[in-house]
């Protein structure tokens, strides 16, 4: 089922990111990721990329998240994808998309450029910014990842535009968080299993207690659901050009929402089965759970995407929800 490119990308990213997480932005690691071609992987070869499929291109993002590596990898990937849609050419990273206004920009102070987005009557306007360091108002998310606000920017006229609805582009950006959550949840499940097999209380490993086994089983169901959610969103992103926004937006919205629910459950179970040690700074669980608590709200919280989906479900024509659901199934590409 998996292409050889996919396995290769997975292997390379695991080699690169394993054991490198937990710290802040690491310029050397960023250079290594750039050398591996990860940030430009979605670009076609003529645009300076590798022409990877979306599944292949998002694989390093998932691995980096599982390793709690703080790099604007997915951000650069998507900014370049949007820029190429608008004919802006390849952008050296790190670079991120940011809606004009007040939103915090991921890794703002480390970015070479920002692709500023504005809602137009038809489509989304893009302008490239090169903000000076002093224009960033520093901030962080719950995991300590930089989320900086750009201050005192004069409004700039868009330099280019993409023929895509703003909500579709928001769904694209949310897919990055969905993929990250899927990676981190699987890593959390892995950490919990190892811990429960090793840690003994009352004379036997925690994993031998039925109450713990059932908690881990629930964690596994959520991890599987989050992985499928991420795969759905990435696959629908891949077919955006052929199946259209009508399929992609609800799929990505559902995926983000479901992965966020899984994140909440996974973090809760993980801390419970780890006991006090999982609550300590020295133990690496919080590197993942704090990220999950952040990512579930970034690029559209559950409530926001739920509102979108509820409206989508309620505005289907007379034949109801079911035909709309099956219309989102992935068509086999010839």
């Amino acid at each position: 089922m998996d292409s050889s490119t996919y396995s290769m990308v997975l292997e390379t990213s695991e080699k690169l990111f394993a054991g490198r997480g937990g710290g802040g932005f690491d310029p050397a690691l960023w250079s290594a990721a750039e050398e591996a071609g990860f940030p430009l992987a979605l670009l076609s070869e003529e645009h300076g990329g590798f022409g990877f499929s979306a599944r292949e291109a998002f694989a390093p993002v998932r691995v980096a998240a599982a390793c709690a590596v703080a790099l604007p990898l997915g951000e650069t990937l998507l900014a370049n994808w949007v820029a190429s849609q608008a004919g802006l050419g390849m952008l050296d990273g790190p670079v991120a998309l940011a809606w004009s206004g007040v939103e915090a920009v991921p890794f703002g102070r480390h970015l070479r450029r920002v692709v500023c987005l504005s809602e137009l009557d038809r489509g989304v306007g893009l302008s490239l910014l090169h903000p000076a360091a002093e224009l960033w108002h520093p901030g962080t998310n719950h995991a300590g990842e930089e989320r900086d606000v750009l201050i005192a920017i004069e409004p700039v006229a868009p330099q280019a535009r993409v023929a895509m609805s703003p909500v579709a582009l928001r769904a694209v950006m949310s897919t990055l968080r969905t993929v990250q959550m899927a990676g981190a949840i699987e890593a959390v499940a892995d950490m919990c299993l190892r811990y429960c097999n090793e840690r003994e209380q009352f004379g036997r490993p925690l994993g031998k207690f039925q109450a713990i086994q059932h908690q881990l089983a629930i964690l596994a169901t959520h991890s599987c659901a989050a992985t499928v959610a991420a795969d759905m969103a990435v696959a629908a992103f891949e077919t955006l050009a052929t199946q259209g926004e009508e399929v992609f937006i609800p799929t990505a919205a559902a995926a983000k929402l479901r992965a966020a629910e899984a994140a909440t459950a996974a973090a809760s179970i993980a801390h419970q089965v780890h006991g006090a040690i999982g609550f300590s700074e020295e133990y690496p669980l919080h590197l993942l759970t704090r990220r999950l608590w952040s990512w579930r709200d970034e690029d559209g919280s559950e409530s926001q995407w739920a509102e979108y989906l509820a409206n989508w479900a309620q505005t289907q024509p007379e034949r109801g929800l079911w035909p709309a659901l099956t219309a989102c199934d992935l068509a086999k590409v010839a």
């Binding site: 759905m232 739920a306 979108y308 479900a313 309620q314 659901l325």
Partner: peptide
């Protein structure tokens, strides 16, 4: 959905949206 159609409200829409999301992922 048939009976609810014409009375949206924030808390309710959140419930409905979550239900749809879970169903979509379960189907796949």
């Amino acid at each position: 959905l048939r009976c609810h159609k014409r009375m949206p409200g924030a808390a309710e829409t959140s419930d409905l949206g979550r239900m749809v999301a879970r169903l979509m992922v379960l189907r796949q």
